[in-house]
């Protein structure tokens, strides 16, 4: 099949790139080498697909939108947590093989696919949105754009879980039972900052959701493909609310008298 561009008579340079792809399952695995013909504009996911179509039909990989919108194709490319669909080949060093391996903070299922179900369980643990009564008879509310800008930023999250992958509390210390990770600290923050929400999740953040474990190394922010200010705009404000509610003497006094 001729590529559409070559049909138009446009010459495209091709080079051969060596890939080292992790193949394996729950019991272990190893890197396998593949050579891929790479043309201009290709991303890592294209190369994986090419390997899958021509050399390894059973190579397991998750992907959907191929446009950085669904957050399915998370992996570690040359050791860095990235979306495969948004990593261009020409942005990687040309002089050495490209390694692709699954996210290492989650149990392996097969090849590049990991078991991320823990994330879905954590989300269910967080108290859902609870709006105040509608402002108007038709069931709508009045909200100003400037009051929702921050919440909209946090709601850009595509749930790729790269922030969870890179967070050392999960990756190195395996605190999965006590700490919900940056994704869900941010999810909580988006709910807490929602102008209509009336629920209180601050005590949960401090206790079972373990916000105290985060020591603001900002690794999560660095890998976020949506460029969300996870640490500055979500986690730190939540930490401040926890401090205000639990450690500020005046607030504590006030809490005793506040009707709940």
């Amino acid at each position: 099949m001729a590529s559409p561009a070559s049909q138009n008579g446009i010459h495209e340079s091709t080079r051969t790139v060596e890939f080292r792809v992790w193949r394996g399952d729950r019991s272990g695995g190893a890197f396998t080498s593949y050579s891929v013909q790479v043309t201009q504009g290709m991303v890592v996911l294209d190369c994986i697909h090419r390997i899958q179509a021509d050399q390894a039909n059973d190579l397991a990989v998750r992907w959907n939108c191929k446009a950085g919108k669904c957050g399915s194709c998370s992996a570690e490319i040359n050791g860095h947590p990235k979306l495969m669909c948004m990593t261009r080949m020409d942005a990687l060093p040309a002089d050495r093989p490209v390694t692709v391996e699954p996210m290492r903070s989650f149990p392996s299922i097969r090849d590049l696919v990991t078991d991320v179900s823990w994330n879905f369980r954590m989300k269910r643990r967080i108290k859902p949105f609870k709006p105040r009564k509608p402002d108007h008879a038709d069931g709508s509310w009045t909200m100003m754009q400037e009051d929702v800008d921050r919440v909209q930023e946090l709601r850009k999250c595509i749930e790729c879980f790269l922030c969870q992958d890179v967070c050392h509390v999960l990756r190195d210390h395996h605190k999965h039972d006590e700490f919900i990770g940056p994704r869900f600290l941010m999810y909580t923050a988006a709910l807490e900052m929602h102008p209509l929400d009336t629920e209180d999740r601050i005590a949960d953040l401090k206790q079972e959701n373990g916000i105290g474990y985060c020591n603001i190394t900002k690794c999560c922010t660095k890998v976020c493909p949506e460029h969300i200010g996870i640490t500055d705009n979500a986690i730190i404000p939540m930490k401040e609310r926890v401090v205000d509610e639990f450690y500020d003497p005046l607030t504590r006094l006030f809490r005793i008298f506040k009707p709940r």
């Binding site: 949105f129 909209q152 929602h194």
Partner: peptide, 22 residues
């Protein structure tokens, strides 16, 4: 319209008009 408002009631945050509507 009712389905859109219902999404707002479930937490969706649409862009706003100057007077704070969807």
């Amino acid at each position: 319209p009712a389905r859109v408002r219902e999404l707002e009631a479930w937490g969706a945050v649409f862009d706003r008009t100057k007077d704070g509507r969807i």
